[in-house]
Design a protein around this nucleic acid. Structure first.
Length: 270
DNA sequence: ATGATCTCCTGAGCGC
DNA sequence: TGCGCTCAGGAGATCA
């Protein structure tokens, strides 16, 4: 569910409310999550959260003593602050008790998410094969266009491939391709150079616009204090099958690519 | 080695 | 009201 803008919204909230806090208690019941932690999560106890970072859709907490925590929200993961006595959401897998009497809780009904603790000096294997973050200024338009030219997959699949660029998911891939006027079916290698060079800036624009609205919420995405994102009202094509394209009024079409829905305008995306 | 397809889960929404 | 079906912001595994 959450893509880069939703994860970034949560990161900002955590940077305000979690940074500087000491983790006094760890209640872990996430044995049924898909992947376990290399180091037992109980070893977070007594450590202070020094910084909250993000790479693609992963949150990276820097703990005192050189420990790292990676959190991925999968499709339905949530990180929410709560008071100690407050009712718990169902499918709560982790409760951290903080030194300000608050709790930070991780819940995830579909269990596609993960929370992992890495000891000092341990490589963050989940990120090792990832490409640069989509908003990382070190990623340049020519580098991005070169990678695109080397890809024979549909451009939509290229954008979703986290080893190419990290952070773009199904919503913003569709929106960025609409902004650039590229058909999602087109092979990366066949995109004209001029459009290939523009695509990265459109990816970044749509991600930044969404961050400014607190992300996109359909059913269930909420940030660290339970607020939904407002970007859904600004989506041009995603989840708008049959509705008019904001640019040319053609009915938005929905197709299936790699078992996932793709939305696009058949007139202005070629 | 790349690209397409399958798979892990629960819950919401729909048509009947 | 309820049943069965489809679909969902991800991404690793597996198949061709």
């Amino acid at each position: 569910m959450p893509e880069l803008p939703e994860v970034e919204t949560i990161r900002r909230g955590l940077a305000k409310q979690l940074k500087g806090r000491r983790i006094d208690g760890v209640d872990w019941r996430g044995a049924k999550l898909r992947s376990g932690s290399p180091t037992p999560l109980e070893q977070m106890e007594g450590r202070v959260v020094e910084a909250v970072d993000r790479h693609g859709k992963y949150l990276h907490w820097h703990l005192s003593g050189g420990y790292s925590v990676l959190v991925h929200l999968g499709m339905t993961g949530k990180l929410l602050f709560a008071e100690a006595g407050e009712a718990e959401r169902s499918h709560t897998h982790l409760v951290l008790s903080l030194d300000d009497e608050k709790q930070l809780r991780f819940s995830d009904p579909r269990r596609f998410g993960c929370v992992k603790l890495f000891a000092p000096g341990t490589p963050l294997v989940d990120l090792a094969h990832f490409g640069k973050d989509a908003l990382d200024p070190k990623l340049t338009a020519p580098e991005f266009a070169d990678a695109m030219r080397a890809s024979r997959a549909p451009i939509k699949a290229f954008l979703l491939d986290q080893t190419q660029v990290a952070g773009v998911g199904n919503i913003y891939a569709a929106e960025a391709l609409w902004r650039t006027g590229i058909s999602p079916r087109r092979r990366g290698a066949s995109v004209p150079r001029a459009k290939a060079l523009k695509l990265l800036s459109h990816v970044r624009d749509v991600l930044r616009d969404s961050i400014a609205s607190g992300g996109t919420s359909f059913n269930d995405y909420v940030d660290h204090i339970g607020q939904p994102g407002k970007y859904v009202a600004k989506l041009a094509v995603y989840d708008r099958e049959g509705q008019p394209c904001p640019r040319c009024a053609t009915a938005i079409r929905r197709i299936s690519q790699a078992n996932r829905s793709t939305f696009y305008c058949p007139t202005c995306q070629t």
